[in-house]
């Protein structure tokens, strides 16, 4: 799937660069944006270290156990068959908590930690398990309770009530998350029947 995406994006950019006469811009972007990925990784590395370190403390001190008990029912529904006290479940709980609090920078390293735990218990190596797909789908949806960046930009542009969008944001993201979870549950079955032929 990622190969299709990668090849598709590159193919489309060549085609439209040609049609729109913007090949020079495409060429510049190819050189500057791959370097941008390195800059981003270096910036991310600090946060990654910070939260991986904090995660280790939270695990060793038993804080994650408490949180995972709180999230137990939700985890059991979303990740059916995953033991609530497994390292993977604890990492997922930390990831979801960070998302809810709007700590996007923290959610990524915690989510990656959860992915690595899930990979170890995945039934088939090299293929995403249902749990891995569910975790990624949850993270591609917005779980943030208060969209601070959006509200700050609204305020900066002279909004009379930057927070008035909150109920609408909750409704839209709630329905969107439900749709994602629903699709993940439904599609996992149809993809199960054809294991080995999908990428």
């Amino acid at each position: 799937m990622m190969s299709w995406l990668f090849a598709g994006l590159l193919g489309l950019s060549f085609l439209f660069g040609l049609l729109n006469g913007r090949m020079d811009a495409v060429s510049t972007a190819a050189v500057s944006d791959c370097a941008g990925a390195v800059t981003l990784t270096i910036q991310l590395a600090g946060v990654m270290c910070l939260w991986s370190g904090l995660m280790r403390i939270a695990q060793a001190s038993g804080l994650t156990d408490k949180l995972s008990r709180l999230f137990g029912p939700l985890i059991r529904f979303l990740f059916r068959g995953l033991p609530a006290q497994s390292p993977a479940a604890k990492a997922i709980v930390m990831n979801l908590t960070a998302n809810l609090l709007g700590l996007g920078n923290a959610a990524t390293p915690l989510g990656i930690a959860a992915m690595k735990e899930l990979e170890q218990i995945a039934p088939e190596k090299g293929t995403a398990s249902d749990h891995m797909a569910m975790l990624v789908v949850l993270n591609t949806a917005s779980l943030q309770l208060i969209p601070t960046t959006t509200a700050a930009l609204r305020l900066a542009n002279g909004s009379a009530a930057p927070m008035e969008i909150l109920p609408a944001v909750w409704l839209a993201s709630g329905v969107s998350i439900c749709a994602g979870v629903f699709m993940a549950k439904i599609l996992s079955r149809s993809y199960n029947r054809r294991v080995g032929r999908h990428g």
């Binding site: 799937m1 990979e119 190596k125 090299g126 699709m183 993940a184 990428g199």
Partner: peptide, 9 residues
């Protein structure tokens, strides 16, 4: 991860 097949993600 080492996942190549992302299935329904």
């Amino acid at each position: 991860t080492k996942v190549q097949k992302t299935r329904h993600t």
